[in-house]
Nucleic acid binder design. Sequence first.
DNA 1: CGGGATCCGCCTAGATACTG
DNA 2: CAGTATCTAGGCGGATCCCG
Lengths: 114, 114
Amino acid sequence: MYKFKGKEYPCCASLTMGVIGGKWKTVILFHLRDKTLRYNELRKEMPSVTERTLSLQLKTLEEDGIIKRKVYTSKPPLKVEYSLTDFGKTLIPVVQSIADWGVSVVEEKYEMID
Amino acid sequence: MYKFKGKEYPCCASLTMGVIGGKWKTVILFHLRDKTLRYNELRKEMPSVTERTLSLQLKTLEEDGIIKRKVYTSKPPLKVEYSLTDFGKTLIPVVQSIADWGVSVVEEKYEMID
DNA sequence: CGGGATCCGCCTAGATACTG
DNA sequence: CAGTATCTAGGCGGATCCCG
């Protein structure tokens, strides 16, 4: 049994999926893997996500210590930047291999025969 | 826009997550990464999954061409073995890096500070 | 600009019972 | 043994409006 942030997982692989799973978290991490982005910059990279969902996913990633949120202004218009924490950076190879496999599939590098 | 098996994804990372995402698929692939297993052997490796869920996940993995299902007997008791296809084997590095990160976290290899 | 509040549909997955 | 059938719940994520 594996534990992380108060949650229990039956397998080391499911622990990781508990952190980066779901429809959007890997996409967020993919875009943050090499740079800092503002909220609206992330939205432009992910046009099909809703504001609420992006907001929620960013919050859970922050709570898990994967990303950090930095606010630069106290009055509107707000400027908020998101970036990986040092802990989050340890996920870069994982996210990269996930992204690479997706690219390989669409490039039809792999044969789909048994 | 990325396409795979009739589904569209906004990012190469989300394509991969569409195939291996969800609560159980990476766990199945983790256990099948180096060996063939029967249905009940898989259940023993994953005691907390229900029969129905395991069944459904195996079916979608088969439909996506990731695993193959081989039936050895025509009359009960049935013998069915699951293993990775050649295409599924291309996912091994991805699953392995996912599993490795989970292990690293519980071994506290990484510091959780910003 | 960067969200929060509210409402809601749908899909994932669980529980349990049953079958070829 | 290896599933299917049925019912159900919980939560993920979408749509829309609102606010500092």
